[in-house]
């Protein structure tokens, strides 16, 4: 599904990532973990097209997507969420998810402004679909609320609903459990599993080890910019290097 090979990233002389390679299977949940400063978020920013790597390639379903900007990746089926949730805070919850369907609709500037007949149909389809995703994320009762007024946990669910509305094949989540209470984290785990069961590949960066070990099919461990280990949750837990890296960090 996703092949990451030989990714190296250098910021002004500092090597943030060094020759990182791994591959991700279809319809799996993969966790990327590692101590602070391991380069997890940098890796995500490269895969999702926000940074361009110094060297190495990212291949999505056989297609080289290295260096493509985020807006080109969404139509190819890759979306992401952010650590400090990025909502469209002045828009309503429903409108946020409707924007998520941008690549699944096509009315242009002039057609919209002149209210051409076909735009009505498309608008209704966007609205219905968006409503369905709100129901999936269990926030449909908040459809009319301005997103900026949402509590953090609901905001997180909204961000996920918006990403799903883009009908992705793969979704990258940057620390989805950050800032959630234990109740909300449990709910999140269910949602992530449901997303996988719909046939969507999930990759997440996460600090909450309990969550990672619980839901992930595979885990990639980064340390100081390099890949330290890769395997099933059980293998990772039994890996001496990983334990040392974490204890050394404490």
């Amino acid at each position: 599904m996703l092949e990451v090979s030989g990714i190296t990233q250098i910021f002004g002389g500092v090597t943030a990532l060094k020759d990182v390679s791994f591959s991700i299977a279809k319809e799996s949940i993969t966790g990327v973990i590692g101590p602070n400063g391991a380069g997890k978020t940098t890796l995500f920013n490269i895969i999702s097209g926000i940074y361009t790597q110094t060297s190495g390639t990212v291949v999505l379903e056989g297609r080289n997507i290295s260096g493509l900007p985020p807006e080109r990746l969404a139509p190819l089926g890759m979306v992401r969420t952010f650590q400090n949730i990025e909502l469209f805070s002045s828009m309503t919850v429903l409108e946020n998810v409707m924007v998520g369907m941008h690549t699944k609709s096509s009315s242009g500037l002039l057609a919209c402004s002149l209210k051409m007949p076909w735009t009505f149909k498309e608008e209704a389809r966007i609205r219905d679909n968006a409503m369905r995703w709100l129901e999936f994320a269990e926030i449909s009762d908040l459809a009319g609320t301005v997103a900026g007024n949402l509590p953090f946990g609901k905001g997180r669910m909204l961000e996920i609903a918006r990403a799903l509305a883009a009908d992705p094949k793969i979704i990258l989540m940057d620390e989805p459990a950050a800032g959630l209470n234990s109740q909300e984290t449990l709910g999140l785990a269910d949602v992530i599993k449901k997303i996988r069961d719909m046939g969507i590949t999930v990759v997440l960066v996460e600090h909450d080890m309990e969550l990672v070990m619980d839901i992930c099919d595979r885990i990639v461990v980064l340390n100081l910019g390099s890949k330290l280990a890769e395997g099933t949750p059980r293998e990772i837990q039994e890996n001496g290097d990983v334990v040392a890296a974490y204890l050394g960090d404490e």
Binding site: S48, I50, P69, P70, E71, L73, A74, P75, V79, R80, F82, E86, L87, F88, S89, S90, M91, E95, M98, V99, G100, H102, T103, S105, S107, G108, L109, C112, S113, T119, E122, E123, I126, R162, A163, A165, A166
Partner: peptide, 22 residues
């Protein structure tokens, strides 16, 4: 409309708008 929402999305968070394909 669809385009108007995309505009407001750029205003609120350009990076999030780009990530969903705007």
């Amino acid at each position: 409309s669809r385009v108007g929402r995309a505009l407001r999305a750029i205003h609120d968070s350009e990076i999030a708008a780009r990530v969903v394909g705007v």
